[in-house]
Amino acid sequence: MPSDPPFRHAIEVADLRKVYTTTRGTFRRTKVENVALAGIDLAIAPGELFGLLGPNGAGKTTTVKVLTTLLLPTSGTARVLGHDVVSATGDVRRRIGFVFGGERGLYWRLSGYDNLRYFADLYRIPPQVSKRRIGELLEVLGLAGREHDKVEGYSRGMKQRLHLARGLLNDPDVLFLDEPTIGLDPVGARDLRVLIRGLADHGKTIFLTTHYMFEADAICDRVAVIKKGRIVAEGTPSSIKQLVGDIGVVEFEVDTISQEDIERLQGLDTVSSVVVTERELALVVTIHCAQPAEVMTQLGRLLDGIAFRRVSAREATLEDAYVELIGEAS
């Protein structure tokens, strides 16, 4: 097996750009360029659990696909374990695993065991090694006993664990997880997060994309926030929260609130954003502001006649910081 070139970072990305060219129109076709990555830089240490956060279409999946050799970058460089993802694809592919979220990506009409054995052979793992490793993975991921059932009969959580088993078949040094908990029930998602954190604790470098902020906050060593193909913030979850350190959050629940009321809140000097979300039978209004106590005292005056169910003030979470960053970057 060829040895790795010297490297300091398990993943190293410099000025990475990816532009997709498509056409528009039926008879008069014009070329349209969509910039998916507008020049990003990343450096991820061996054994680190790194989270890339961003809204849909921000460039998370494109980044993963470039790093897993599925896409060629338009310009810039990307190295995994010192190997260039463009010129040394074979070396990269041997050393990485990747898991894309969702139910697809498996052969549903075959058993979980058949799926794993097929990919073990495609990863060119010797049969005696693959047999042992498949057994271990089935055990660790809680699929033992169901491995000979067809995948179509698996629950979503089981399918996602089978995905993870497939991604770990070649005992990769770097594992890419693209929204691995998407669509899972809370217990299944929590179990998967524990597993992912455990893998990082055992020395694997993990590159995780998600738009669940609490997930990134709970398990990632470091995160970066990507918006429209650009990294807008990078650091530990705590340091990202400190970026909006002077921001507090006031939250209250109401049955209904008018657009005029929201605009009145947004008009306050200390308020940077107001977000309204539906939760069960109530509307939750989240106000990001510099002086939460002052805003709370003004609520009654500004929203005269509105019946508040619950009012609270709290420190900013990673999700609050994310909302601020994404808002600023737009």
Binding site: T68, L70, R93, F98, F100, R104, G105, L106, W108, L122
Partner: peptide, 9 residues
Amino acid sequence: NGTLEQIFA
């Protein structure tokens, strides 16, 4: 199936 990328990589 979503497996084309996997067998490609």
